[in-house]
């Protein structure tokens, strides 16, 4: 029988703990496949965040560090500087990267730290039970914005790609969505480019993945995908925000 699909070797056989309909699993697979395709077996070190992906160290089949909330880019800096020939990827959620860890991500980007950051933006705190995130949309209800996020009280969503692309350090900044097969394929390409940039020594890259959290949004997985596609992309437009290769052409 012809083999048409195989699970990537860069994932372990441990079952994901993620909720049904959550896109973390897709994101994990895309990263793992890209790592394998780029020949990173036995050469990769991943940094797991605090948040739903806290157990990422169980799933990626490579050396992993689990670190403090928001500090992944700093820890990754430490790893990369002492293992410059290895591929270091960072996996962070929106609370981790865009709230408690804003200083770390901005300065890692500003230094042009030669790492690849995968930023999962699902506009909500998942692990702690659905609180407001820095990327929660205006009007979106969460357990700490029960009447919907009000900008006059809680400020506005932070647009990480837009923010970081103003810096000179990054080589590649892109926002994708895990909302449908076509966008998932685009996300894979972006992740691959980010990792390739690192291997080629081009410096910092960040790929934001608009993601779902049906459990905490209180909607079905399909409705959550639609929310990403129809609502989140209005505030967080998809696209490439910085690409030093394109700029050189």
């Amino acid at each position: 029988m012809a083999v048409v699909f195989e699970k990537t070797k860069m994932l372990t056989d441990v079952n994901f703990h993620y909720c049904p309909g959550c896109t973390h699993g897709i994101a994990h697979r895309l990263i793992a496949e890209a790592l394998e395709e780029l020949g990173c077996e036995g050469k990769a070190i991943g940094i797991a965040p605090v948040g739903c992906a806290v157990f990422a160290y169980k799933y990626f089949n490579c050396d992993m560090q689990q670190v403090a909330h928001g500090r992944a880019p700093a820890a990754a800096t430490g790893v990369k500087r002492v293992c410059p020939d290895k591929v270091v990827f960072v996996y962070q959620g929106d609370g981790d990267l865009a709230s408690i860890g804003t200083a770390e991500i901005i300065h890692a980007a500003a230094r042009g730290e030669n790492i690849t950051v995968i930023f999962i933006n699902n506009a909500i705190y998942g692990m702690t039970g659905g609180q407001m995130a820095p990327t929660t949309l205006i009007g979106q209800k969460t357990t700490t914005s029960p009447h919907g996020r009000d900008a006059s009280v809680s400020g506005n969503p932070i647009k990480v790609c837009e923010l970081l692309s103003t810096l000179d350090g990054p080589s590649y900044i892109a926002r994708c969505a895990l909302s449908d097969p076509a966008n998932v394929m685009k996300a894979k390409k972006a992740i691959t480019k980010g990792l390739k940039n690192q291997i080629e020594g081009k410096g910092f890259s960040l790929i934001e993945l608009l993601s779902t959290c049906p459990t905490n949004m209180g909607i079905t997985p399909i409705a959550a995908l639609d929310y990403v596609k129809n609502e989140m992309t209005k505030i967080f437009p998809l696209g490439v925000y910085k690409d030093i290769d394109a700029a050189q052409k």
């Binding site: 500090r71 002492v82 770390e104």
Partner: peptide, 19 residues
């Protein structure tokens, strides 16, 4: 580092990687 918080986490990463 950008802060003491980052500095100690850089130590975490580097020490974890064997340095």
């Amino acid at each position: 580092a950008e802060s003491e918080v980052s500095a100690i986490n850089m130590v975490y990463g580097a020490a974890g990687a064997g340095a």
